[in-house]
């Protein structure tokens, strides 16, 4: 799953720790989500959506399918 969490966070001038505190998770979780190495649970995705005031589908989108 790809995402624009890092860009959205930077546009608000938030640190990773600030976002982690807002969501109640560890900073490492934010780092891994931003790198695309960790797909958050649905409740956490909804919290991200609420914190950034944007729908989930604007923050997360599936990987482009491999060209056949």
């Amino acid at each position: 799953m790809r995402n624009i969490i890092a860009d959205t966070r930077r546009s608000r001038e938030w640190s990773q720790q600030r976002l982690a505190d807002e969501l109640g998770v560890s900073r490492q979780t934010i780092i891994s989500i931003e790198r695309g190495k960790f797909d958050p649970s649905l409740p956490l995705a909804f919290r991200l959506s609420a914190v950034f005031e944007r729908p989930i589908e604007e923050l997360f989108f599936p990987e482009a399918p491999d060209p056949a």
């Binding site: 969501l23 109640g24 998770v25 560890s26 490492q28 979780t29 891994s32 960790f38 956490l44």
Partner: peptide, 12 residues
């Protein structure tokens, strides 16, 4: 300490 550790990557 994270408020929701079960949502964190450490839990996974």
């Amino acid at each position: 300490a994270a408020k929701d550790p079960e949502e964190s990557i450490e839990s996974r």
